[in-house]
Design a protein around this nucleic acid. Structure first.
Length: 479
RNA sequence: GGCUCCUUCGUCUAGUGGUCCAGGACGUCUGGUUCUCAUCCAGAAAAUCGCGGGUUCGACUCCCGCAGGAGUCACCA
């Protein structure tokens, strides 16, 4: 049978690190089996609805490369894919339950319910609405909440991650199916939708585990085949034991895109947080994840989010793309990450800069700080030269002499390529009798006045003859 | 509080009765790669496998208790 999975977020804001796994795993499972993934927007709570959130969700999925087969934008045979547009469907199913005697209109005002709950709290007994079930219920009509009529009994089920589960009758309750405003609750809507859309795997966070018996009761009442149930453990915040959530400052997934994290690295990291294939591999491409993914290797305990590892992985991916797909492929990803002064620089020049600096990047946004001196002359800071730990042993006149000699030698060079420059630097080293630490530091700092830079001969080669010599001369004059 | 789930290096994890005085990765530390920073390479420290019982010739692995942590008990999802 075809595997059908779904990702069913509420449009209440952006997708963050803590909840994106419930999109990744359904995607991997669907692609692996040749099945399909549905995107469904659960917008039944008008109070929490956030304008533009649906677009944010779509943007996140598209960035990560998690394309859906049915849903907003792409459409499909089981639409609409917004719950707010499926009112009639829920009401039809609701009437079915009413006619079977498994649902009833409940006119009890919320204040009265709060009172019941309070009574139970005082008596230290669990609050179950079924114990307060009204006897003379009116006919159901819009404006009155509709409740499920629970039949307390024991439930057994299998969760693909948590294993065999059981729950006693004490957890079964008369949950609300349709709210006063006519919208269904999540509890009811997702069951109807999954059934109508042919969903075979329901993957969601573990917070739904304890309400599963109530869902099971509804499947049973409706005569529906249960989908496979998959509970995904929480991702924990870096500190404490709480799940990662927006109020702990969980960043949105796409915020990392803006910070220069590659989608490949993000997907790789998130997929492997709480899942592994049993090997010692750390870097996975999307096709590899699709091939290797398996539900039974999803961890049953929560996993702590570790940004340092994400950044490490991102560095690995930056290098992987450069070496496997070429400098141009990586360069194509760098738009928007260059310093402002690079605006007028040519693509060819930026590509050269990228080629000598890419293996130092943890994120693409590192380009901003690390490459500034390639695009504009740095401010001369003689202090940086004179007090350098290698250069402070040399007198100022000695530094000036060395710089002038270097300029003279480099000026005389017949060509200005990395190889020639390397040779020139080596012979300069031999002729002056200076240590590399001294001569190279002097030249490197004079060129960049930066905390660090790529290999000296490469830096010279990319900066070009005119710029290099001008900067060395300027530094010599400033000493 | 009731119910439910979870528990191996700081972190992510491997481990399905002996090959584990517990392996890999991130992070940390040390050394190397003609200066710097990073990469890369080599190496180190790092878990009495939550605790206590049992079963067994033998347990991280099976059973039972306990403790700790988490989730849930909405006309939110």
């Amino acid at each position: 049978m075809e595997i059908v999975t779904r990702f069913a977020p509420s449009p209440t804001g952006y997708i963050h690190i803590g909840n994106v796994r419930s999109a990744i795993y359904p995607y991997l499972l669907a692609r692996q089996s040749g099945g399909k993934m549905i995107l469904r927007i659960e917008d039944t709570d008008r109070a929490r609805y956030v304008e533009g959130a649906t677009e944010l969700i779509e943007d996140t999925l598209e960035w990560l490369g998690l394309n859906w087969d049915e849903g907003p934008i792409v459409g499909g045979p089981n639409g609409p894919y917004f719950q707010s547009e499926r009112q009639d469907i829920y009401h039809a199913w609701a009437r079915k339950l009413i006619s079977m005697g498994r649902a009833y209109a409940d006119p009890t005002p919320p204040e009265k319910i709060a009172e019941y709950r309070e009574q139970c709290n005082k008596a230290k007994t669990p609050f179950l609405y079924r114990n307060f079930r009204p006897t003379d219920t009116p006919e159901w009509q819009p404006g009155i909440p509709l409740r499920f009529k629970a039949e307390p009994k024991e439930y057994l089920w299998h969760d693909e991650v948590m294993g065999d589960m059981h729950a006693g009758p004490e957890v079964l309750d008369d949950i609300i199916l349709i709210k006063k405003d006519g919208f269904p609750t999540y509890n009811f809507a997702h069951i109807v939708d999954d059934a109508e859309m042919g969903v075979t795997y329901v993957m969601r966070g573990v917070e739904y585990l304890s309400s599963t018996p109530n869902y099971l009761a509804i499947y049973e009442a409706l005569g529906l085949k249960r989908p496979k149930l998959v509970s995904l453990p929480h991702i924990l915040a870096p500190t404490g034991n709480k799940k990662l959530g927006k109020r702990d400052g969980a960043k949105s997934v796409t915020e990392y895109r803006d910070d220069g994290v590659l989608a490949e690295a993000m997907l790789n990291y998130l997929a492997c947080l709480g899942w592994n294939d049993g090997t010692e591999q750390e870097i996975y491409t999307k096709p590899e994840l699709i091939e290797r993914f398996s539900l039974d290797r999803i961890q049953s305990s929560g996993a702590r989010y570790d940004e340092a590892k994400l950044f490490w992985l991102n560095g690995q991916w930056i290098r992987k793309i450069f070496t496997e797909q070429g400098a141009e492929a990586l360069y194509a990803r760098t738009a928007g990450f260059w310093p402002e002064s690079a605006a007028t620089a040519s693509d060819e020049y930026k590509l050269q800069v990228l080629s000598i600096i890419y293996d130092r990047l943890k994120t693409l946004s590192d380009l901003r700080d690390m490459t500034a001196y390639f695009f504009s002359d740095p401010r001369i800071d003689t202090d940086m030269l004179i007090n350098n730990k290698f250069l402070k042993k040399l007198s100022e006149s000695e530094l000036e002499e060395l710089l002038k000699l270097s300029v003279a030698r480099l000026t005389a060079l017949p060509s200005w390529d990395a190889g020639t420059l390397q040779d020139a630097l080596n012979s300069l080293l031999a002729d002056t009798g200076k240590k590399p630490a001294e001569l190279f530091s002097l030249i490197r700092i004079s060129l960049s006045f930066a905390a660090f830079s790529p290999a000296l001969h490469l830096t010279l080669a990319v900066l070009g003859r005119d710029t290099s010599l001008a900067r060395l001369n300027a530094a010599a004059r400033a000493i």
